[in-house]
């Protein structure tokens, strides 16, 4: 039991993952979908950061008084993934703006209704 609680970082990551994923699927608003997508991606960043954390570890500094280090590699990887995430959100929002310009709405059901009655 305490094992399961001790891994609370993972619980949070999974909870956020599901919140984000649910939002992507269930929300009808295109911007809200992107917010969900962002949360979903962020949860994966948390997963990676947790993975690299060593108990009582610091950043990898060479010097006296620092002997336990966290693994910096997953942290650096996530730096790249954050950039990718931002780019995705930016492209997504740009598309939403253009959709709003052309169709006058960003609600999924209204967009579908427009398509059915040209």
């Amino acid at each position: 039991m305490s094992d399961a609680l001790g891994l609370y970082n993972y619980w949070i990551a999974i909870f956020l993952m599901m919140v984000g994923f649910y939002n992507v699927i269930a929300s009808g608003n295109l911007v809200k979908k992107l917010i969900g997508l962002s949360i979903f991606q962020t949860s994966v960043f948390l997963l990676y950061i947790t993975m690299g954390k060593v108990k009582d570890g610091t950043a990898p500094i060479l010097g006296d008084g620092y002997d336990t280090f966290s693994n910096p590699l997953p942290h650096v990887l996530i730096l790249t993934a954050i950039v990718v995430g931002i780019a995705t959100t930016a492209v997504g929002l740009a598309l939403v703006i253009r959709i709003q310009e052309h169709f006058g709405t960003i609600e999924e059901d209204e967009l579908i209704a427009q398509e059915d009655s040209p």
């Binding site: 994923f21 992507v24 295109l30 979908k33 997508l37 979903f40 991606q41 994966v44 993934a81 995705t88 492209v91 997504g92 598309l95 939403v96 253009r98 959709i99 052309h102 169709f103 967009l111 398509e115």
Partner: peptide
């Protein structure tokens, strides 16, 4: 203009796929 909606849909599904791979 329908390409915008198609690209948006692809973006959502593609990002989910890529994040799963991540």
């Amino acid at each position: 203009p329908r390409a915008l909606k198609a690209a948006y849909k692809y973006l959502i599904m593609g990002t989910i796929g890529a994040t799963f791979i991540l």
